[in-house]
Nucleic acid binder design. Sequence first.
DNA 1: GTCCAGGCCAGAC
DNA 2: GTCTGGCCTGGA
Length: 297
Amino acid sequence: MGKRQVISKNNNIYISGEEDFEPKHIFENGQAFRWEENGGDYTLVADKYVIRVKKLAEAIVLENAGSMKDYEDFWRKYFDMDRDYPGLRRELSQIDNKLKMATEAAVGLRVLKQDLFEMIISFIISANNNISRIKKSIEKLSELCGEKICEIDSKAYYKFPSVSAIADLNPDYLAEYTGVGYRAPYLVKTGKMIENAEVDLGLIDKLDYEAAHKELMRLAGVGPKVADCILLFGNSRDMAFPVDTWVIKVMNEYYLGNEKNSKRIKAEGHRRFGDKAGLAQQYLFYHARENKLGTKK
DNA sequence: GTCCAGGCCAGAC
DNA sequence: GTCTGGCCTGGA
């Protein structure tokens, strides 16, 4: 693979010479929910875009993603194109053999840099839930109060809702329409807290990791794990280390044995992986889930 | 019917 | 601070 090259043509963006870009490893690792797989290609809704991500032998194609200006203004950051992933994998591989194996199994994984508010709402919905239901709920929520983007094959696509749109919802109706269940009041309350600046999202960028984590936990429905997901996927915090059921399994299998306390598991992640803990977590998470680690067949 | 899914919250200690 | 039980909902 040579040096990366990005060009645009007919509203499509082509990325060639990039060895770390595997759509399956990017989307199917729980960091994003607004995608749909068809025959190895992925339809993705992000911001005002509905694109199709294809991996061809010679290039990655982002169909309908716009011009070079769209790439520079949005996609470059979204796909974390300024990080040296081959270098990251080499660095993680040197930490230990487990991480070496995990990175080798998920080459092409990238940690997306998504919208902060969208991550807050999405991960509140994710708590004690499963991926297919999370995705359905988020689509229904966007349909309920997000701005329409376009229609493709008579299917309508909507932007993720604004803060005020969610703050103004009736919790009972929200629960009924989207299937978010008991999380509905959390979503509305969190929307209101952000709308009236009780929690200032602009501050999250400025605070150090611990303070930002603590600040996010003030939001309704946001606990330690959800706050770490928000920071990792919506605020570019490489050291955020979300401890979910899969991470508990993989950390115990490889490092700890039988630790149930999430706080101590997170501390172990930081001890071993340092300020790259979140990136290590993504490779380990993908690896753990692919291999159904710690579950009986 | 029971169990579980990328946890959070409230209450008890 | 740490631990426990309950929880909308839908699919296995």
